[in-house]
Nucleic acid binder design. Structure first.
Length: 490
RNA sequence: CGGGAUGUAGCGCAGUCUGGUAGCGCGUUCGCUUGGGGUGCGAGAGGUCGUGGGUUCAAAUCCCGCCAUCCCGACCA
């Protein structure tokens, strides 16, 4: 097995797969399409969860938990929703096994057939709205602002670790409101939360927008999304927030008495981000040496590697380093002192680079004599010698700088790979090279489908901040009022 | 579900065409060495060759069936 990773420029998908495995984030499991998230990968996910959860709480939401299983009759109730998810559902039909009469192993007991099949949730709108029916009678019961952290199953034909797995972890917010305006405001607010998280925690710039009808969530009136650009020029939908109108309330008969003493269906939203964000994080920043993690999500922000020959040397180094570790911890910085003698320093350097630790300190006998420490940055791969006594404070600033540098770099990449295109020839040529394409579209599903068929490009979104600008559709030449974002997507 | 490919040591692979009883790299174990960018040398351990059958004195190798995985397409957070 070679020590280096595949090069991004040579084979991007292989680079991604290898990086996920080698950095200890996750691996494929014995169950097809499902992954094992390993401790280091899960630690990153936990940091994401914590940050998001705090943001949900800060916007008034509470966590709850609803069942894994959805009765088939629930899923059927909202027609579009049912149609959208029917093709990718795992179905529980029996509840018991028994010894196989042939003497070997177990078999499904045919006598244990369920009266009604249970669907393993692909999303929870239906179970949740079935419960909301009992919770909502009056406008005084509203709004209901709930989030759940859960696993869901979508039986995809092709899977890619973190980006599209059969089972994945996510959070799903489900809210109920008394008015349309309030529900729309909630939908937009949560999109803002996602954009904030993506940019300020993941250091990943995103475009906020709305999906076209054909890309809409099944059962939604409007789907808002954040779209990010990966280093290979493909787009990734990083989060969605849906305005569900009264569709689910109608299907589950959730009515409340409004202030005018009239019965009205409740207004709904739902919004989610998943472990797909792990894939986004990896593909947004990492390089041929391994992961590059933004300090705010790095499980280890600083690693300290002592360089020594004898036990006596190690003791001296540790003595000098211990107070530095305490200082770093006091500043709220996560630090690991790796004095493990089982690996050599050179090996450790490569390993922590692979794992994306933002800052590495190396301290040897020479440093002790000079009162210095070697500080290495993961994002720039640069090293410098710093006075040891003030290093903790220096690192605090450095971590902030790395966080913003990673963001700036990703933003620069996106800007360099976003193209304004006005002709079909140009469009076809540019889409091959990757990146976001900003172009006019006539607003019809037919044109959208044709473009997808001919170029594999989809409309990622109609950006919220797009300006009104009269133009001609890049495909049909018909009138268009604004540009939309096209890209090949994950 | 269509098209293509692959199953040989923990991992990555060679050996299959042309049948003769299994090999390389990495990892791993032990010893010495080395230690500021994946140290070097030496000695070990580890495989019913995916699976079931057939041909043959003899099968990883040839033939037939099955299973699994991967890639490409249809589907998608």
């Amino acid at each position: 097995m070679s020590k280096g990773l595949p090069k991004r420029s040579e084979n991007y998908p292989e680079w991604y797969n290898e990086l996920v495995k080698r950095a200890g984030l996750a691996e494929n499991s014995a169950v097809r399409g499902c992954m094992v998230i390993k401790p280091y990968g899960f630690a990153i996910w936990e940091k994401m969860q914590r940050a998001l959860d705090d943001m949900f709480k800060a916007t008034g939401h509470q966590n709850a938990y609803f069942p894994l299983f959805v009765p088939r009759s629930f899923l059927e109730k909202e027609e579009e929703h049912a149609e959208g998810f029917a093709k990718e559902c795992a179905v529980v039909t029996h509840y018991r096994l028994k010894a196989d009469p042939s003497g070997k192993g177990l078999m499904v007991d045919p006598d244990s057939k369920l009266e009604e099949e249970l669907i393993v949730r692909p999303t929870s709108e239906t179970v949740i709205w079935n419960a909301y029916k009992n919770w909502i009678q009056s406008w005084r019961d509203l709004p209901i602002l709930i989030n759940q952290w859960a696993n869901v199953v979508r039986w995809e034909m092709r899977t890619r670790i973190f980006l599209r797995t059969t089972e994945f972890l996510w959070q799903e917010g489900h809210t109920a409101h008394a008015t349309e305006q309030e529900a729309v405001a909630e939908t937009e607010q949560m999109l803002g939360v996602y954009a904030d998280f993506a940019e300020n925690w993941m250091a990943m710039p995103v475009i906020q927008g709305v999906k076209t009808p054909s890309e809409r969530f099944a059962g939604a009136v409007e789907t808002y999304c954040i779209e990010a650009l990966m280093q290979d020029g493909r787009a990734l939908q990083a989060g969605t927030s849906h305005f569900l109108g009264q569709n689910f309330a109608r299907s589950f008969d959730v009515k409340f008495v409004n202030k005018e003493n009239q019965l009205e269906f409740a207004w709904a939203t739902s919004w989610g981000v998943s472990t797909r964000l792990m894939g986004a994080l990896i593909m947004a920043h990492s390089d041929d040496n391994g992961l590059v993690l933004p300090p705010k999500l790095a499980p280890i922000q600083v690693v300290i590697v002592p360089i020594y020959k004898t036990e006596e040397d190690l003791r001296k180094i540790s003595e000098r380093i211990d107070p530095i570790i305490l200082e770093l911890k006091a500043l709220g910085i996560t630090v690991k002192y790796d004095d493990d003698d089982k690996q050599r320093s050179g090996w450790k350097f490569a390993e922590y680079e692979l794992k994306g630790v933002p800052v590495r300190l190396a301290v040897g006998m020479r440093d002790l004599e000079n009162g210095t420490v070697e500080v290495a940055r993961r994002d720039t791969l640069t090293k410098e010698s710093r006075p040891i006594e003030s290093v903790a404070e220096y690192i605090r600033g450095l971590l902030e700088e790395i966080q913003s540098n990673i963001y700036a770099r990703a933003m620069e990449f996106r800007e360099a790979n976003t193209f304004t295109v006005d002709s079909w020839d140009e469009f076809k040529e540019q889409i091959e090279k990757g990146g976001f394409i900003s172009a006019h579209w006539d607003g019809t599903a037919e044109t959208e489908a044709k473009i997808k068929e001919e170029t594999k490009a989809t409309i990622r979104c109609v950006p919220l901040n797009s300006i009104e600008e009269a133009g001609k559709c890049v495909y049909s030449g018909k009138e268009s009022a604004k540009r939309v974002i096209f890209a090949r997507a994950y």
